[in-house]
Computed example of a mutant assay.
Amino acid sequence: GNSGAEANEGAIKIARKYAHQIDPEKSQIITAWDSFHGRTIATLTATGQPKYHEGFGPLPDGFDYVHYNDIEELESMMSEKTAAVMLETIQGEGGVYTPEGDYLKKVRALCDKYHALLIFDEIQAGIGRSGKFFAYEKYGVKPDIVTLAKGLAGGVPIGAFIVTDAVAKAFHAGDHGTTFGGNPLACAAANVVLDTVPKPEFLAYVEEVGSYFKQQLEHLKAKHSALITDVRGTGLILGAELASAEHGRDIVNDCLAEGAIINCTAGKVLRFIPPLIITKEQVDTVILTLDDVLAKYDK
């Protein structure tokens, strides 16, 4: 495909098609509140943020939402009519939330129990960003479907959904396609990424610099404890939660004015998703800039 939304659209389609072969009424897809899966009508519906739904109804049926990391709520929602559970391995747009304990292993077990597919959206967290090629490798869980985009071709538009052999049999010629999907330019760029990012030394570098970046953010949290309440994430997908949403946008704009590009998501989470080749020296520059900016609001 050409984007993350297309990748997730394809994942939803094949999950429904696979489930239909088991039971025509097996169609429920469960996603998480505060998730983000795209802006097509189906992926918009899968996105567990009502603000993105406004004005686009009626939305497709068959989507339900649970809170991320709440395994009891998920279990109460599932049945033999569940076709798939679709989660971001690490929630990005929702505020950089990582899975707690063995949450993902328990999700996998519930999917197996109800013959539902497990879909991991790794459009943001995949392609080495977590310090592993697939973020799910960090948590010892293998999905039935994984979706990729963003980093897959180093900025050239491409998306992909990868499925197991068993799931792949659900699709036949004509079930899915896209005008520019798999075009030579995007695939050539993706091949360079696939030749580079999976190398152990490259991933180890992401882990090392990511750990250093997180440590420096922890120091800022200690220094500006009235402003920053939490630091979380893994590899080079990190977040610093502010005490309130009052200054989030101002901090982003002030950093930009000083040459540091960050963003603020979920209203009050400063999100850091730098190039995977960022150096510790560049991290230091970002931290110094952020320190100066925070001092303006730390009163």
Rank of each mutant, 00 (worst) to 15 (best):
A166T: 08
L104R: 02
E137A: 10
V141H: 07
E93Y: 13
E122Q: 10
D175N: 08
C187M: 14
I90D: 02
V156H: 10
P157F: 02
V156S: 12
A149W: 03
S130M: 06
G131C: 04
L118F: 02
F180W: 14
N191H: 14
G95Q: 05
P200W: 06
K199D: 14
P184R: 05
G154C: 03
G210H: 05
H172T: 10
A186H: 03
A204M: 15
K106F: 06
A189K: 14
T89G: 01
A186R: 01
A168K: 11
L194F: 14
Y136M: 06
G126T: 02
P184N: 05
F180L: 14
P99Y: 04
T89N: 01
G131V: 05
H176C: 10
I158G: 04
D121C: 08
Q91D: 05
D144C: 01
D102E: 14
G101W: 08
L148A: 05
I145D: 01
P198M: 09
D165G: 01
Y139E: 07
V209L: 07
G182I: 09
H176I: 11
E88T: 09
I145H: 05
D112N: 14
D121G: 02
K132F: 14
K106Q: 15
A149G: 04
H115K: 15
Y136P: 00
G94F: 06
K199C: 11
G94M: 06
A204Y: 14
